[in-house]
Amino acid sequence: MIRVELVKLLRRPRTWVTIAMLNALPTLVAVLLALTDIGPRPGTGPPFLSAVLTDGTLFPLAALAIVLPLFLPVAVAVIGGEAIAGEAQTGTLRYLLVRPVGRTRLIVAKMVSVVAFVLLAVVVVAVVGYVVGQLLLGDGDPSGAVASVSGTSLDSTQIAQRTLLALGYVTLSMLGVAALALLLSTFTDSAIGAALGTVAFLVASTVLLGLDAADALQPWLPTRYWLAFVDLFRDPILWRDVVRGVLLQGAYLLVFLGAAWANFTTKDVTS
């Protein structure tokens, strides 16, 4: 079933349109930077953006940092919200279930396909970022060494390894969003409703994150550790927030996916 879901994902025009749109903003940013040569002052704006003017090899990370807070989660909410509700809307859900595809099996396959989408999107954003960075932005140090966030220098293998780690971390960061979108998708037959509900939850999380009075809640907010991937480029790597971020996403995944499973396997399919 997982294979079928992946084929469906890859053969959907919407998947590729979404990914193309994800790439539009970082590319626009790169073009503007290349044309004007005006970067944000160090310490302001998205991470890595001030560094890419001189070194285009960091642009994949800058591109991820640009899409991570809003574009990527919205895309995940849309694709995840489609998972069950979209099948219900087209009426194909009932035909899958009488095929028969077990309900547990179906929901797991859907979750896997949403995660596959995130991975695909993140990789494409990184690759496009790399190409754009190489073409438009600075070449950096000829030896390939890059300054870490801590100021020491990282060689190109280290950068490659850490970039891969960062891609993995960003993908894991989206697990909570994906599982929530899937959960809402089992409650409603409207894919848009499920996506908007998920976005609302993320907006709430972001708002609370900026509120001092919500201090006690903050370690539990799904968006709390999203930008911790920057810590992977410190020297040595600062694992604390990365690990917490992964654990937190794992907890959200368990709770939301468990609820989605409990709801979906006992519900009347009337679509």
């Binding site: 079933m1 294979r3 079928v4 084929v7 469906k8 035909y95 899958l96 095929r99 028969p100 595809v101 077990g102 099996r105």
Partner: peptide
């Protein structure tokens, strides 16, 4: 084909 491939 997709429907044929779906399921156990």
């Amino acid at each position: 084909s997709l429907l044929d491939a779906a399921g156990r």
